[in-house]
Design a protein around this nucleic acid. Sequence first.
DNA 1: AGACTAATTGTTCACGTGAACAATGCAAGG
DNA 2: CCTTGCATTGTTCACGTGAACAATTAGTCT
Lengths: 326, 326
Amino acid sequence: MANRVTIKSIAKDLGISHMTVSRALSDHPNVNKATRDMILTRARELGYVKNAAAKAMRGDGTKIVGLLLPNIINEFYARFANALALACEQNSLHLIIHLTNDDIDQEHAALERLREVQAMAVLMVPAPRRTRDEITQSFGLNIIQLVRECSIEGTTATILIDDLSAIEEAVQHLAQQGHTQIGYIGANNKLSSGELRLAAFRTGLAKAGLIENPEIVQTATPSFEMGRSCTSLLLASQTATALICGGVEISNGALAALMDRGEDPQADIAFVGYGDPSYYAWIKGGISTIKLPVDQLAQEAIRLLQYTESQAVNTQALKATLTLRP
Amino acid sequence: MANRVTIKSIAKDLGISHMTVSRALSDHPNVNKATRDMILTRARELGYVKNAAAKAMRGDGTKIVGLLLPNIINEFYARFANALALACEQNSLHLIIHLTNDDIDQEHAALERLREVQAMAVLMVPAPRRTRDEITQSFGLNIIQLVRECSIEGTTATILIDDLSAIEEAVQHLAQQGHTQIGYIGANNKLSSGELRLAAFRTGLAKAGLIENPEIVQTATPSFEMGRSCTSLLLASQTATALICGGVEISNGALAALMDRGEDPQADIAFVGYGDPSYYAWIKGGISTIKLPVDQLAQEAIRLLQYTESQAVNTQALKATLTLRP
DNA sequence: AGACTAATTGTTCACGTGAACAATGCAAGG
DNA sequence: CCTTGCATTGTTCACGTGAACAATTAGTCT
């Protein structure tokens, strides 16, 4: 490989001091115009790029942003990562992605690696903790939590998604349409938002003056298969006339079960999905769904990146919105 | 922020030379066992992690792998990135993702940024070039090209996907089922694989002894909308009894058009999609599709990362496979 | 001219790490 | 007791960059 082009090598090439070159390249005012032009030209010819490692060593910061996600196949995370990556592109930031599989140990390892490269900030969807107050050390990392909130040292901001009112709204909407047997399939985790969503569902029922039918309300560890099988059972029982899903994977599984039946998948059950993967739009007749503010989340995350040095810890929640089929 | 824990700070803390600490931390043999234990313990207590920037400056390499993709929403790229990220996790590599939007300028910028951080290797899906022999400078980067092949300096390996035989096979399969009016919708780009896929389609027709009907063979700039509208027209004409798609977006668009019709989307047209997003599996009756070897691609890419210093440029193609609906 | 500013360029140093070499201590052999 | 050899620890240096300070040049005013 050709020797790396450095400020010093350019200086030697031109027979001047490396500081003059450094100043020219960083737009310092005290450089003669002719000299600067000559240096910039030569630098371009030689293909100079700054050495990020050297800059980092001087304590100038790294322009590295870390992103920790459970995975990147789930369309919600993929779209978030995409939006974030685009923003990083524009702001000349380096985006390092780590997958945690929602596992604390992997998350821990990822944080350590981000410390090695001195990431200027870390955006993370925390893995679910075993206990609420398990504190995670961050050793000086600058952390922005997304979607979930945990006790993580160094957190400067938290952006949550508030889907509770959307769930309530969904129940009320279905009730207004005359449904009395509204089913719900959701997650059973105690620490994450599972219990909150179920509570919102129940609040919705109460506000609509409906009584919960426990037979058509299912919670378990969320997964595609879980959503699919629960929905199949629900359909077989022919009790529920409407179904609300409380999670992305569950919603996908439920939809698969609906589509198995052919014709109009929503012929005899009113369905409210969760999340908004692109393919929901293809389904005949459209689908009612609880839309997650992905783009807004990315936008807000990016905005917060600018203020990473801010003192006050900032928590906010972005509203999910119920979108009805046409 | 707490002062960073460095080898020197540990040394000072223990009142010994920084070299002894360095040696202990990098498992150098010439360190007294007792001393080493003391150092390792103290380092763990203080939360020491190595400074990647300093290591990079010494010329020890960076453990940074760059990944350039058009986007990361497309499920093909998302799954590839996911597999790759997992592998990087295991091998303690840092994965930096850049999105190019299939734009050469953005690609160029991304490569430059990866040069700044001295990426040890770059995996990239090259953006389509305007001309075949436009050479891209890489300035010492170590490049592995994926899916497409371009004239990029510093390329050490190329992994392509060979979907041609799968397309031929699809035609022949349809012909065997008695179809004589087989439609095709594909990309029209001259430099990428668009023309090759069309050629494969035609070869398939010829081998099956069929004549091409130009009315039901469409090529244009590939997109979801293009696939959708072309398919709608095709369906309206009621000429074609089968349809093969030559691209992921097109295939998705075509499927959307099919699903708009309700009932069995494939009632009066035999459909062969392209790619294998998870939701294809949900469609009633299943779907025939040309499966892309994503996992194999990721696996092979990771394997090649080990041999980046290898001298011989290595090109290989992974076969796409035709999967029939049950 | 002499002196004094302002503009421009140069020198040295630190950042964290590990190679290369230097120095210390200790035990065995004479 | 002194030498030799080995195990262990210490010192110095370079990597690329830019801050801080020093030095040089050119230009202006009396």
